[in-house]
Computed example of a mutant assay.
Amino acid sequence: MSKPALRLSALLPLGLALLLTTAACTRTPEAPTANDTAPPAGAVDPAPGDQVDDVQSLLALSGEGLQLVGDRTGSTTTLEFGSAIELVADAVTSILGEPLESGENSECGSGPQTITQWPRGLVLHAANGEFIGWSARPEPDAALTTMAGVGVGSSRSELDAAYTVEVFASTLGTEFSAGSLFGILSSPAPDAVIEHLWAGTTCNFR
């Protein structure tokens, strides 16, 4: 069953702290993801002729970065990879609260990264002041998904229904690619679930 995208109130300003580790870096190809332009779950269609303003925003994961989506209009702002990490961190902090931890990892294959973890399992990866990747980890209250409703905890059938998926064995486990999204399944079985999900340049031990 698809999980709703996480709700957020208005963005607050906040200077960034950066964080955490995991390590050998994976660079995500630039291929587009399927269904990332579909209206988010929970968006309300306005009645004809009504002037509708957004009350809240939804946060969605994307193969191109992160997306902020109006809860009523469905208008979308993409925080793309290559954006200033301060801007992205402010947006994420306004949604999830203060980061849990932040630190430098100098052992990533693509070079040093600043890695910051927020509640709900979201981790942002930055280098040279730029947002370069995100990863999502298992958390009991995690609710972050793509616009297609796919996130950590989604089933393989939900993944297959939303994207063209390639599944393969790697040193990380049962790995998959779905356009610009990558992740780990709990097993090769049809009833497997997504245990980890990432996009962009991250730092994974292989």
Rank of each mutant, 00 (worst) to 15 (best):
E104H: 05
V52H: 01
D141R: 13
W118K: 02
T145N: 03
E104Q: 11
L59K: 06
E130F: 01
K3D: 13
L87Y: 02
L172H: 10
G179A: 06
V167C: 04
W118D: 02
L61V: 08
T164P: 02
E166Q: 10
R120Y: 13
A148W: 07
T21Q: 08
G82V: 02
S75Y: 05
T28N: 11
E80H: 08
A136C: 01
G183L: 02
E158N: 11
S106P: 00
A91G: 00
T22Y: 07
L124W: 06
A23I: 03
A41S: 11
L61S: 09
L124K: 06
A43E: 02
D191N: 15
N35K: 13
V167M: 01
L87Q: 11
A126V: 00
D50F: 08
A199Y: 02
I85V: 15
A24G: 08
A31E: 12
C108W: 06
R206E: 11
A31G: 09
G49S: 01
V44R: 14
A38E: 10
E158S: 13
V167T: 13
S106E: 10
G121D: 07
L87V: 12
N204Q: 13
V123I: 13
S110Q: 14
V55C: 04
T114N: 14
A192D: 03
T114Y: 12
Q56N: 12
T174D: 11
G200K: 04
P190W: 03
R120H: 14
A142P: 01
E139V: 04
A34F: 08
N204S: 07
G63C: 04
S83Y: 07
G200F: 05
P112K: 10
F176V: 05
L66D: 09
K3N: 12
N35P: 00
S75D: 14
P112Y: 07
C25V: 12
P39M: 10
E158T: 06
G151P: 02
P48L: 14
L16R: 13
L79D: 03
G70N: 09
A169K: 09
G65S: 04
T28Q: 12
Q67I: 12
L159A: 11
A24Q: 14
A41W: 02
